[in-house]
Nucleic acid binder design. Structure first.
Length: 436
DNA sequence: TCTGGGGTCCTAGGACCC
DNA sequence: TCTGGGGTCCTAGGACCC
């Protein structure tokens, strides 16, 4: 048995903790670069604002409906997430943190009434952290996800589902008829694992509701679609196929990519950006104690513009697996020089570290004399530890590689973030002040 | 004018092996 | 005239997730 605890409109809810004036009003949080709406309050949803809607298309609601938009404040969301997760963990013996606002809880062996227990955890999270969340319970992770959807939707759109399923929904204790009614009221596209593409294919072949999908024969699903969809159907039928992953493996690739605040044409600006992205990626790499054997760099123009398009990437193998910022930046910049073409308005660039391996395994090698020695490598590794320690203690970017540009204002490629709230819980200067 | 970022898994097809 | 069979590994691309 699994539960899924999921924060409602998570980023907006985080912002509302410290800005009570946002409660009850339509509010959205924008993606990086203030580009798209990535979180919407219920009031914003009611205005018809879709997930991922470009900001410039819904901006008019600012005047007409009092819509408030904020830039993403990931330092805040990450911190609130940690607090929420530690309380959610109290629901059962095991926990998988699935995303910034969701965790699966393994419920095996939990005594008593699961619904009552979930309501308690839910109010504790609301009271102690300030984030409203919903809990879905089912015999498989896919069913728990579905139950969570029901719990949220029953709250937001009265009438679609029975009112007693709002906030906490345990599909496993519903009567057969009640569960069937829920399945019939839910479109296949809402199911975890069914995206736009497969959703449309299913609809086209007459499979419209979850009930239609559950009734399908798994062999037909496998033949007509894939083993992935077969797993989803089995999970909906109550056969667990996806286990709880409470000790996630280290990442197999690490990326840092950004759209620019303004189009960039010069190689010098791209070099700054690529240096910065590389060094951030290298930092993440060291954090999970890995080494990278390859660096991929890409640059591209904006597909939304009429201009002539250009998009290219290149993989640069590293001479030996490394987590050294200098070596990774060097490789990325070399790659950039190889793919750069003058005359284009570049909108985005990125760096990905690939072929990751643990830093506890070192490939031995022959000393050929013309390359950095093992002593140099050890030296660099100490340098990186010092760099990370300084930035950890005195704040991100206290020390950085000079090729990423020194003067913040002249970095034309920096992303736009015009509406960001302070780091209320992560920055001394951002702590809210209460006045008498 | 203005459209995010960071991941994972699966499959098909080609290269290569004996 | 007539040219095998059975594997593995790698990669690119597609689909999905939040």
């Amino acid at each position: 048995m699994y539960a899924l605890v999921d924060g409602n409109n998570f980023y907006v809810s985080c912002e509302r903790i410290f800005r009570p004036s946002l409660r009850g009003v339509p509010a959205v949080v924008l993606s990086n670069n203030d580009g798209c709406c990535v979180a919407r309050s219920n009031e914003a949803k009611a205005l018809g604002i879709k997930m991922g809607a470009p900001w410039f298309q819904v901006k008019h609601f600012e005047d007409s409906a009092g819509l408030v938009a904020l830039s993403a404040n990931f330092a805040l969301y990450g911190d609130i997430s940690d607090r929420m997760m530690s309380l959610a963990a109290g629901l059962g013996p095991t926990q998988e943190i699935y995303s910034i606002d969701e965790s699966f809880i393994g419920l095996d062996g939990v005594p008593g009434d699961l619904v009552e227990r979930s309501h308690k955890i839910r109010s504790r999270i609301l009271q102690w952290v300030g984030v409203p969340c919903c809990v879905g319970i089912g015999t498989t992770k896919t069913l728990a996800k579905l139950a969570n959807h029901v719990a949220k939707t029953a709250e937001r759109k009265p009438g679609l589902y029975p009112a007693h399923l709002a906030q906490v929904c345990n599909l496993a204790i519903l009567s057969h008829a009640e569960r069937q009614a829920v399945f019939e009221a839910t479109e296949v596209g809402e199911v975890w694992g069914i995206g736009r593409r497969i959703g449309k294919q299913l609809m086209d072949s007459g499979i419209q509701t979850v009930q239609d999908l559950v009734r399908m024969d798994v062999a037909t699903v496998r033949r007509g679609w894939s083993v992935v969809l077969e797993r989803t159907v089995r999970e909906l039928q109550g056969t667990p196929c996806i286990g709880l992953d409470d000790a996630p493996a280290p990442k197999q690739e690490i990326a840092c990519t950004r759209s620019f605040g303004h189009a960039v044409t010069a190689l010098s600006a791209l070099t700054e950006a690529v240096s910065e992205f590389s060094s951030r990626a290298a930092e993440k790499l060291r954090k999970q104690s890995s080494l990278a054997a390859q660096v991929m760099v890409f640059i591209r123009t904006s597909p939304f513009r009429r201009d002539e398009q250009y998009s290219r990437s290149i993989s640069v193998p590293l001479r030996r697996p490394t987590a050294d910022t200098g070596a990774i930046v060097q490789a990325a910049v070399l790659g950039l020089q190889a793919i750069y073409r003058p005359g284009f308005n570049y909108a985005k660039a990125g760096v990905m570290l690939m072929d990751l391996q643990s830093d506890s395994i070192r490939q031995g090698e022959l000393e050929l004399g013309d390359e950095a020695s093992l002593e140099d490598m050890a030296e660099n590794s100490r340098l990186m530890s010092a760099l990370d320690a300084i930035n950890q203690r005195y704040g991100k970017g206290t020390m950085k590689i000079a090729s990423s540009g020194l003067d913040g204002d002249r970095r034309v490629w920096s992303m736009r973030q015009e509406r960001r709230t302070p780091g209320y819980t992560t920055d001394w200067a951002g702590i809210p002040v209460a006045r008498a």
